[in-house]
Amino acid sequence: MTPRRALLAAPALVLAAGATRARSAWAQGTGDSLVLAGQQGWLFPFWDNLTQLDEVAMRQVLGLHTEVIALLKRGNIEVAYCLIPMKARIYRRFLPAGRRFAPVVERRYSNLVAALRAAGALAPDLAEVMAQASAIDPHWPVFFRSDTHWTPVGAETCAVALATAMRAQFRLPAPPQAGVRLGSIRMLRLAVGDLVQYLPPEQRGAFGPEESPIRNVLPATAGAAALLEEDASDMQVVGTSNVQPRFNFVPVLSNQMERAVGLSWLPNNVGPYAALLEYVRGSEFRQRRPRVIVWNHLESDMSTPINNPNWRQSGLNAESFLNGLRQAVLA
C-alpha cells in the first residue's frame, strides 16, 4: 500500500530525534555583501529586507495577482498558492544580534495570505506550518542553513499542508491518473549552499555539505505507466527552483492528492510570471487544461514589481503578461 496521508499527515519527516549536526559558530557582519551571516552557521539572503517594505509596490503586485486569479477562474481553473515565507521569518532566532523585523515586514506574510484569499485563491499559511515543523524537530530544518532553498523536509511540510487545504476546499473529480508512490527515507546531500559564494573567499571554508532526509519515489506500476500515454495530470505546479524535482515537493503533493501532478518551473532569476506565461502558452496546456494551478512564489518577491530588473524577463510588463494569459486561457 502506498504511504499516503497516514504516513505524511504528521509534521514532515520527524525523524532521527536524537540526531546531531555539526554547526559552525561563525558569525559576523558582512558589510555590503549579499549575504547576512547569522548565528550557528546560518546564512540569510541580504535581499530579504527585514526593515523596509515598499507597500505601494506590494499593492500593485497584489492587484496584478487579483487579475490573474480572476482570469484563471474564468477559464475554469482554480488557483492555489505555494507562498514560501522568508527563511529569516522561520529562523529569526539565528539572525545576527540586534537584527529585528520592522512591524510592516512582520505583518507582510499574513497580509499577503489574506489578500490572496480575498481575491478567490487558496492560500494556506505556510509560515505557520513551517514554524511549527521547525519547532517540533529542530534537528532537520525546513530550510538549508547556507542556502536560499527549503529542504525536502520543508518541501514535504508545505506539500502536505497544501494538499490538506485543497482536499477541503476544491471539489475535484476522480483523478485521471493515480498519485506518486513514496517509499523509504534516504539522505539528500547539498554539497555547498548557494549563499556561500557571496562570502569572502577566506570564510567559505567554514561551510561544508548539508544533508536532509527525503523520501524515495517508487517506480510506477505497469498499469500506471501505460496511463501516462493516455491520460495526464489535471493539476499543475508552476514556479521557480524550490519546486524543482530535487526537493520532492511535487511527488509529495501528488501522493497526498492521490492524483498525478504536473510541473513547470524556471530558475528564480527568470521569475514566476515568465514561468506561468510559458506554461499556458505551451502545448501541454493546450492539450490538457488543468483544473488547478498551484503557483509558487517567494514572500519577498510579492512586493517586487513584475518588471524587476533582477529577473531576466524584466521586459515583461503587467499589461503584456495579462494579455498573454488572456490569449492562452480564454481563447
Rank of each mutant, 00 (worst) to 15 (best):
E278W: 05
D147I: 04
L112A: 03
P272V: 09
P245W: 11
M58R: 11
V180G: 02
E67G: 03
V14E: 08
D301P: 01
N255R: 12
G282C: 02
A115I: 01
M86K: 12
T51M: 05
A135S: 14
T2D: 10
L227Q: 04
V261H: 06
E106W: 05
A191M: 02
S320M: 03
L95H: 07
A12W: 00
Q313D: 14
L7N: 06
G98V: 02
F101T: 08
R167A: 07
G193R: 03
A274F: 03
D32K: 15
A22K: 12
L36H: 03
I136F: 01
L263H: 07
D234M: 09
S303M: 03
I84K: 03
Q236M: 14
T148A: 11
C158P: 03
P245I: 08
P201Q: 12
R167T: 09
A12F: 03
T157S: 10
F170E: 06
N308T: 09
R326M: 00
L34A: 15
V252S: 09
D301C: 04
Y91H: 13
V192Q: 15
S110Y: 04
F247L: 15
L276S: 07
T151H: 12
T51D: 13
S303Q: 10
R21W: 05
Y109R: 05
G154Q: 04
F143G: 04
Q256G: 08
L162G: 13
A224Y: 00
V104C: 12
E299I: 07
W47H: 11
E210R: 10
M130L: 15
R181E: 11
R93E: 14
S303F: 04
S134Y: 04
V192E: 12
A9K: 06
A121K: 06
P201H: 07
